[in-house]
Design a protein around this nucleic acid. Structure first.
Length: 512
RNA sequence: GGCGGGGUAGCUCAGUUGGUUAGAGCGCAGGACUCAUAAGCCUGAGGUCAGUGGUUCGAUCCCACUUCCCGCUACCA
C-alpha cells in the first residue's frame, strides 16, 4: 500500500488580506496532513501564494513598489496565516520563486514539444470599463450599440495574438479519465457539474496574454506572458522540483493524493489541470475535492454588511483550537457552512469546555484528591469497561475509510460520541461511591484515563495544541503519537506519574 | 432558457437501496446525583420529513406536477 500522501491547499492570491475561506481550506488540509502522519504516512503538505497577474501589478504600481517587492510584503500575510493556524505545511511555494519559474518554463516547453500549443488570435467582445471579454450571447444590441447584458457597458471587437492550448482535443480523453477515476472529482455534485461542462464541448484555451506584463514569459516569445492559471497550477509540481522527475520528492509524492480547493476554482483543477498534465505526459493528481464556502448568517460575508469574521480576530478573541474545531465540526464538509460568533461560543462551551475539558478535569482532579496523581492499577474489567474501551477497536478501520473518503464529519461525530460515552461511563460507575472498593476504584480511573488518551489522540488532527496538552499528562509527545495506539487498552503503565494541567477551555459568558 | 442539487424538530444539520414509535447536537422543561469548568447523567416536550396527485399491501424516501432556494452554463481569479 502507498504510504505517501501529498496534500495541497490552493495557492492564495495575496492581493487581499486572508479571510475565513483561506483559513478554512488551510485548516482542513492540515487536518488531513496531521491525520495521515499519525497513521504512519510520509506526508508532504503544500500551501503558498499565487503572485502573478494584473491585479497584483496594479496594486504594486499604486504603491510605487516593484511587483516583486510588493509580493514579498503581501505573501508574508499568508505565511503568517499558516503560522497562526498552526499548519504543519512542509513547504510554502511562491510563484515568483526561481524553482517555480523553472517548472513553468519546462512544462510550457514540454507542451510545445508535444504540439499541444499553437499561436493564433484571441478575439471577442471586450469592455474596457469592465476589463472583461464577453461571448456573443452575453451581449445585446440597443440603439445599434453593442452592450454587455450584465453590466450594460459598451463593448468592442478586439483581436489579440495569443497562444492556445489544444484543450478541445482532450475532451474525450478527459471523459475517459473521469470514468476510470470516479473519485477524481468530489463531492459528487461537483463531479456532475464538471462532467456536464466537458460533455457540452471544450474549446481550445488561450494560455498567453500580450497585455499582461507581470508573470512568466513564454520561453520562445518574450512578447507573451503565460496565462496565470497555467502558471499557478504548476505550483503543485514546482514544489517537488519538477522538471527534475528523478529526485526523491517527486518520485515519492507525484501524483498528488489530494488537491483541496474551494468550489469556485473547480474547473481549473478538474479540467484544465489534468488536461495540461496528460498533454505533457504527466500523471494527473488522484483527487480534487471542492469544498464549500464559509458564510456568515445567510449571506456571503461582505464588508458592506459588516458581517465579516476575520480569522485573525476570531483567533485572538477565542483561540485557534476553538476555531479549528468549529470549522471542522459545524460545517458539513463539501457544503457551504455558516459561522457566527453565537454558534462558535455555543460550540466552545458545550463541546470543548463542558464535554471534553470537563471530562479531563473531573478525572484528573478525582485522581489527585482520592488516589495518587499517577496511573492507577487496573484490575478485573467489567463488561462495561471492555465495551467502552473496545469501541475504538471496533471503529478503527471504519474511521480510516471515512477519512479516505474525506468524510470528516463522520470522524468528528465519532469522537463526540465517545466523549458523551466517557462522561456517562464516569457518571454510571460513580467512583465517588467506590472508596471502600479500591480495586474497582482504581480500575474505573484507569479506564477513564485510557478513554481520555484515546479521544485525545483522535482529536490531534483537529485541535493539535489542546490534544498535545492533554497527552502531556501521560508524557506522550507529538513524535510518539500514533493512530494505531487507540487499539491498545493497556497503553498506560500503572505507577507512571501524571502531570497536572489546568482548565483546557474557559467557558465564555454570554453578553446579552 | 438548459443541466444539476436541495426544501427533515425553535436553530445547525444527519438519515431512510420504501416497512412497525423519523435521528443528533444546541436551545427549552422536569428529575436524580455531586467527582468536575453550576459541568456531567436521566426523562420529556417539540416534526402532516415544502405542497398536490400517482405507483404500491405500505412513501419522508420512487414517479409526475406546483412552489421556493442554490449551483453550473469557460478564459477576473
Amino acid at each position: 500500500m502507498d504510504k505517501n500522501f501529498y496534500i495541497t491547499t490552493p495557492i492564495y492570491y495575496p492581493s487581499a488580506k486572508p479571510h475565513m475561506g483561506h483559513a478554512y481550506s488551510s485548516i482542513i488540509a492540515d487536518f488531513f496532513a496531521r491525520f495521515k502522519r499519525i497513521n504512519g504516512y510520509k506526508v508532504f503538505f503544500l500551501t503558498g501564494t499565487d503572485e502573478h497577474g494584473q491585479k497584483i501589478q496594479r496594486a504594486a504600481e499604486s504603491q510605487n513598489l516593484k511587483p516583486k517587492v510588493f509580493c514579498d510584503l503581501i505573501s508574508k500575510n499568508f505565511q503568517n496565516l499558516s503560522k497562526t493556524l498552526n499548519l504543519t505545511n512542509d513547504d510554502f511555494i511562491r510563484t515568483t520563486e526561481k524553482r517555480h519559474f523553472k517548472a513553468v518554463n519546462s512544462l510550457w516547453k514540454k507542451l510545445e514539444e508535444n504540439d499541444e500549443i499553437y499561436l493564433s488570435k484571441y478575439s471577442g467582445w471586450y469592455s474596457v470599463s469592465d476589463e472583461a471579454f464577453y461571448s456573443d450571447d452575453e451581449i445585446e444590441i440597443v440603439n445599434n450599440i453593442k452592450l454587455s447584458k450584465s453590466s450594460g457597458s459598451k463593448v468592442e471587437w478586439v483581436e489579440e495574438e495569443s497562444y492556445f492550448f489544444r484543450l478541445s482535443k482532450w475532451q474525450n480523453k478527459l471523459l475517459d479519465f473521469y470514468n476510470e477515476n470516479p473519485n477524481f472529482i468530489l463531492p459528487e455534485s461537483r463531479r456532475n457539474e464538471v462532467l456536464s461542462f466537458v460533455k457540452s464541448g471544450l474549446k481550445d484555451l488561450s494560455i498567453s496574454r500580450k497585455s499582461l506584463k507581470w508573470g512568466i514569459k513564454v520561453p520562445s516569445n518574450e512578447n507573451h506572458t503565460i496565462y496565470v492559471w497555467l502558471d499557478a497550477l504548476t505550483n503543485y509540481l514546482s514544489a517537488l522540483n519538477y522538471p527534475d522527475t528523478s529526485n526523491n520528492l517527486y518520485k515519492k509524492f507525484w501524483p498528488a493524493s489530494l488537491h483541496l480547493i474551494g468550489k469556485d476554482i473547480l474547473r481549473f483543477h478538474a479540467i484544465f489541470w489534468p488536461a495540461f498534465l496528460l498533454a505533457a505526459n504527466i500523471k494527473p493528481p488522484k483527487k480534487v475535492y471542492g469544498h464549500g464556502w464559509i458564510l456568515s448568517g445567510e449571506e456571503k460575508m461582505s464588508k458592506s454588511k459588516g458581517n465579516i469574521l476575520d480569522p485573525m480576530d476570531i483567533i485572538k478573541e477565542y483561540g485557534l483550537d476553538p476555531l479549528r474545531y468549529y470549522l471542522i465540526k459545524e460545517v458539513s464538509f463539501g457544503n457551504d457552512g455558516n459561522i457566527s460568533r453565537d454558534q462558535l461560543v455555543k460550540c466552545i462551551n458545550s463541546d470543548l469546555a463542558n464535554n471534553y475539558g470537563n471530562l479531563c478535569q473531573r478525572v484528573i482532579s478525582f485522581l489527585d484528591k482520592n488516589l495518587k496523581l499517577e496511573v492507577p492499577n487496573k484490575y478485573n474489567l467489567t463488561i462495561e469497561d471492555n465495551n467502552i474501551l473496545n469501541n475504538f477497536k471496533e471503529n478503527y478501520n471504519n474511521l480510516l475509510n471515512e477519512i479516505d473518503n474525506q468524510n470528516i464529519n463522520y470522524y468528528i461525530n465519532f469522537i463526540v460520541n465517545q466523549l458523551f460515552s466517557a462522561n456517562k461511563y464516569f457518571n454510571d460507575q460513580e467512583p465517588w461511591n467506590k472508596k471502600d472498593d479500591l480495586e474497582r476504584l482504581n480500575t474505573i480511573l484507569y479506564v477513564s484515563l485510557e478513554l481520555i488518551r484515546k479521544i485525545s489522540v483522535l482529536l490531534y488532527p483537529i485541535i493539535p495544541d489542546t490534544s498535545l496538552k492533554v497527552l502531556s499528562i501521560f508524557d506522550i509527545n507529538e513524535t510518539d503519537l500514533s493512530y494505531e495506539s487507540i487499539l491498545n487498552n493497556d497503553f498506560l503503565k500503572p505507577k507512571a506519574k501524571l502531570k497536572k494541567i489546568g482548565i483546557l477551555f474557559k467557558k465564555i459568558e454570554k453578553n446579552d
